[in-house]
C-alpha cells in the first residue's frame, strides 16, 4: 500500500480510478477498483477469465457506464462523459474481437480513426489538401503496424492476424496519449506474436500503454507494472518480478495447470 502510494506520487496520474464498480444485475463484474497510471507507463492487467479485465476497459473507455466510483482521465473527471469525448481527449482502445469496418479498405479504416478524433469528420465537402495530409498520416500508422502492404484491400478479405495489425494501426493513428489494448496477441501465430512484442517495445515513450494479455511472456516483457485482477477486484499490484514471485498469482493462474484444484474461497 505504501509502495503503491509512492508510485502514485511520482507524477500526476494520466488515469485515476477511485472505487470504480460495474454491476450487471446481481453480478459484480468490477468492484471497488482503485488504479493510478502515470504518463508513459506500461501497465499490464492480468487475471483469469471472468476477472473483470475487459469490463474495466469498457468502463474506462466509456463503452459502459460505471455503477459506482469515479474515473479521471488526464486530470479531468470523465465519469459521465461518452466514449467519443474520451476518444477526443486522447484515449484509444482496441477490442478483444477486432472490431473493424469490414466493408471499408485498410486505409479508410485507419483514416476514420484519424478523422474521428479530429474536427470536421461530418463536413460535407471534400478538402483535398487537408485530406491528403490525413491520408499520409494513415499510411504512416499502417507502416508502423507493418500492414502497409495491404492499404487498398477491403478489410473483410484479410486474415485474422492482419485484422489485429489494422486494429493496432487504428489505435496508433489517432495519436493517443493513452493506448488500451485488449488481448492484442490472441489468435496470433508465434511469428506474429514476436512482431507484436517488438511493435509494443518500440512504442513512443510518451504514449501510456495499458494491456490486457493472457500471454504472460508478452505481458511481462512489455509491462513495467502489473495489476492482477480476480473476481472483479484488484488483488496484487507490482513489478513483473514481484508478480512472478507472488504465491497468490501462482495459485490463481498456475493452480489449474498443475492440477491442484483451488478451494471455493480462492479469492479470500
Amino acid at each position: 500500500m505504501t509502495e503503491a502510494a509512492a508510485h502514485a506520487e511520482s507524477a500526476e496520474p494520466i488515469l485515476r480510478l477511485r472505487g470504480v464498480g460495474r454491476r450487471f444485475g446481481g453480478l459484480h463484474a468490477v468492484s471497488d477498483v482503485d488504479l493510478d497510471v502515470i504518463p508513459g507507463e506500461r501497465r499490464a492487467i492480468l487475471g483469469p477469465n471472468g476477472a473483470g479485465k475487459t469490463t474495466l476497459f469498457n468502463v474506462v473507455a466509456g463503452d459502459l457506464p460505471v455503477t459506482s466510483g469515479r474515473i479521471e482521465l488526464f486530470g479531468r473527471d470523465v465519469t459521465r462523459e461518452p466514449a467519443r469525448q474520451r476518444a477526443k481527449l486522447g484515449l484509444a482502445r482496441s477490442y478483444q474481437q477486432s472490431r473493424l469496418f469490414l466493408g471499408l479498405s485498410v486505409e479508410d479504416n485507419i483514416f476514420l480513426a484519424i478523422v474521428g478524433v479530429g474536427r470536421g469528420h461530418l463536413r460535407p465537402v471534400v478538402l483535398p489538401r487537408k485530406d491528403a495530409e490525413l491520408r499520409a498520416r494513415a499510411r504512416e500508422a499502417a507502416r508502423r503496424a507493418a500492414i502497409d502492404g495491404r492499404l487498398g484491400d477491403v478489410v473483410g478479405a484479410l486474415a485474422h492476424g492482419e485484422h489485429r495489425q489494422v486494429a493496432l494501426a487504428m489505435a496508433l493513428a489517432a495519436e493517443p496519449k493513452l493506448l488500451m489494448l485488449d488481448e492484442p496477441a490472441s489468435g496470433l501465430s508465434r511469428g506474429e506474436r514476436q512482431l507484436l512484442t517488438e511493435l509494443l517495445l518500440a512504442l513512443d515513450a510518451d504514449i501510456t500503454l495499458i494491456l490486457i494479455e493472457h500471454d504472460m511472456d508478452i505481458a511481462l516483457r512489455v509491462a513495467e507494472r502489473v495489476t492482477m485482477m480476480h473476481e472483479g477486484r484488484v488483488i496484487v499490484e507490482g513489478t513483473p518480478a514481484e508478480i512472478r514471485a507472488n504465491q497468490l498469482v501462482h495459485d490463481l493462474y498456475l493452480g489449474s495447470h498443475y492440477g491442484s484444484e483451488p478451494e471455493g474461497g480462492a479469492s479470500g
Partner: peptide
Amino acid sequence: QMTSALGV
C-alpha cells in the same frame, strides 16, 4: 459502437 469509440 466502434465508430463512436473512434470519436465520431
